[in-house]
């Protein structure tokens, strides 16, 4: 790769760097598809309340389980609600909650990981033991417990998801930090007498940032998967707010004769997860990080 240095580059602004990364991502077909899907869903999340043709919570017993028609594009559900309306609205909550959840995961996981990697020794041992212990409790059990005792409000879900999906980031950030602190430029900074804070901020973070961001992007897709599983089990978004996981779970029992009510949210949710995943993949490749060797912990 050293051969590409011949095209000398100058220092770039953060914005220029970002747009360059996005262009690299979009230059592969899979990255382009992923980005388009993601952008589509994000735009949809913003505009769907204004374009929805029907009221998402209008119950009408006379319209129960109607097949798709010109009026009701995707048919109606068991309460006579328009499936199309509910489908285009059904990603908003999930998208918002998991986005902020990932941010929290990224922050606490990344910082704790860097800290552990840097100080090492006993503190590191103890923290990693505890992180390991949290890892060994299945996330779904822990999440279900928290949600069932504290409720399903956004203020509970975001920090809870953020906490449980941040554990894995701790490990990644710690490993990345370990790789970096062995390098001579850190030794050199220490020998010069820079403070720990300055070393973390100037030397470590710029060098582990990419790995942690990629990890965060991966977490996002897993968190979405986890969150919709919760919804599906009835522990996520509470009705009547439309949500794909919940819609799938409700329509499942009736799918032998009203498959449309289940297909529409399935397509919505799957496409979003795949979109995020492909984007995360392309992001990793654009930054030169191989993400496929990692377990989804």
């Amino acid at each position: 790769m050293k051969l590409d240095n011949i095209y000398k580059e100058e220092k770039k602004s953060a914005f220029a760097k970002l747009s360059e990364i996005i262009i690299t991502m979009a230059s592969r077909p899979s990255g382009l598809i992923g980005l388009s899907i993601l952008v589509f869903h994000i735009i949809l999340a913003f505009i769907s309340p204004y374009i929805a043709p029907h009221d998402f919570k209008a119950i009408d017993p006379t319209l129960m389980l109607q097949a798709p028609s010109a009026e009701y594009w995707f048919g109606t559900d068991d309460l006579g609600r328009d499936v199309f309306t509910r489908t285009i609205l059904g990603g908003r909550t999930a998208l918002t909650i998991t986005f902020f959840g990932s941010l929290i995961a990224l922050l606490w996981g990344g910082l704790l990981g860097i800290f552990c990697g840097l100080v090492g020794g006993k503190i590191d041992d103890v923290v990693m033991r505890i992180v390991d212990a949290f890892l060994s409790i299945p996330w779904i059990l822990a999440m279900l417990l928290i949600v069932s005792l504290l409720g399903t409000s956004t203020e509970v879900l975001i920090p809870a998801l953020g906490f449980f999906y941040g554990k894995g980031i701790v490990r990644v950030a710690r490993a990345a930090t370990h790789d970096v602190i062995a390098k001579d430029f850190i030794v050199s900074a220490r020998a010069r007498g820079h403070s720990n804070f300055s070393i973390i901020w100037n030397e470590i973070i710029p060098n582990v940032r990419d790995a942690i961001l990629v990890e965060g992007a991966m977490r996002w897709s897993w968190m979405l998967l986890g969150f919709s599983s919760l919804s599906f089990l009835g522990f996520g978004v509470s009705p009547p707010t439309p949500d794909w996981g919940l819609m799938i779970s409700n329509a499942r029992g009736l799918m032998s004769f009203a498959y449309w009510a289940v297909i529409a949210p399935i397509v919505g949710l799957s496409s979003l997860i795949i979109g995020i995943n492909l984007t995360a993949d392309a992001f990793a490749k654009a930054l030169g990080i191989d993400r496929s060797t990692k377990a989804p912990v």
Partner: peptide, 23 residues
């Protein structure tokens, strides 16, 4: 700080001794 200033190091491999993310 002054004790640290009077002694400086130069390393074997400049690839490793310069932070790749700094100009």
């Amino acid at each position: 700080p002054n004790d640290l200033r009077i002694i400086q190091l130069i390393f074997q491999n400049p690839d490793e001794s310069l932070n790749p993310n700094h100009t």
